[in-house]
Computed example of a mutant assay.
Amino acid sequence: MNLQLINWPAVLVAALSAFLVGGIWYSPALFANAWMTDNKLTREELRASNKGRAFGFTAFFSIIMAVNLAMFLADAKTTLILGTLWGFLAGIWTFCAIAIHSLFELKSWRLILINGGYSIVSLTLMGLILGAWR
């Protein structure tokens, strides 16, 4: 790992891409209704929640994820294909972590697939951005 090979603007774009994916993934057009149902949440509860806290921590953790992935990809041989592959593999890793704690929380497989699927897609896109933008 060569930290001088980290492209910090690419890290920020990769972190922001998690917001874009999340906004689409958890929208009513895709999985919002199933996600709310399986979490036993209502629109009123979500409206009343602390969005600043949720989005602030989401930004913080997305940056950490992008920096961490960039550290793994900090090699002169990294390409778009390798970045995408390693992002996908990181997504599989987080999918498994989500599945493990969700099973003990008695969550549905549908919810595990929704949340784990988001991790796979967002980390794959992060890897693609970091691999392509060298």
Rank of each mutant, 00 (worst) to 15 (best):
1 M>Y: 07
2 N>P: 01
5 L>I: 06
9 P>V: 03
10 A>R: 04
11 V>C: 04
12 L>N: 05
12 L>I: 13
13 V>L: 14
13 V>D: 06
16 L>Y: 01
17 S>N: 08
18 A>R: 13
19 F>G: 00
20 L>E: 02
21 V>N: 08
23 G>D: 02
24 I>E: 13
24 I>L: 15
24 I>P: 13
26 Y>M: 14
27 S>Q: 12
28 P>Q: 02
31 F>V: 10
31 F>A: 12
32 A>W: 04
33 N>Q: 15
34 A>Y: 01
37 T>P: 01
38 D>M: 12
38 D>Y: 13
39 N>L: 15
40 K>A: 13
40 K>C: 07
41 L>R: 05
41 L>S: 01
45 E>T: 00
45 E>C: 00
46 L>T: 10
47 R>P: 00
47 R>V: 00
47 R>T: 00
48 A>F: 02
49 S>D: 07
51 K>R: 10
52 G>C: 01
59 A>W: 03
60 F>Y: 09
62 S>Y: 02
65 M>S: 14
65 M>F: 13
67 V>E: 15
68 N>V: 14
68 N>G: 13
69 L>Y: 05
70 A>P: 04
71 M>K: 11
72 F>A: 15
72 F>I: 15
73 L>S: 07
76 A>M: 06
77 K>T: 14
84 T>S: 10
84 T>D: 01
85 L>I: 14
90 A>T: 11
91 G>Q: 01
91 G>R: 02
92 I>D: 08
93 W>Y: 12
94 T>V: 14
95 F>K: 04
96 C>F: 14
98 I>H: 07
100 I>S: 03
100 I>C: 02
102 S>W: 06
107 K>A: 09
108 S>W: 09
109 W>P: 12
111 L>F: 10
114 I>N: 11
115 N>E: 11
115 N>H: 04
117 G>K: 11
118 Y>I: 02
119 S>L: 13
124 T>N: 08
131 G>S: 09
133 W>K: 05
134 R>N: 07
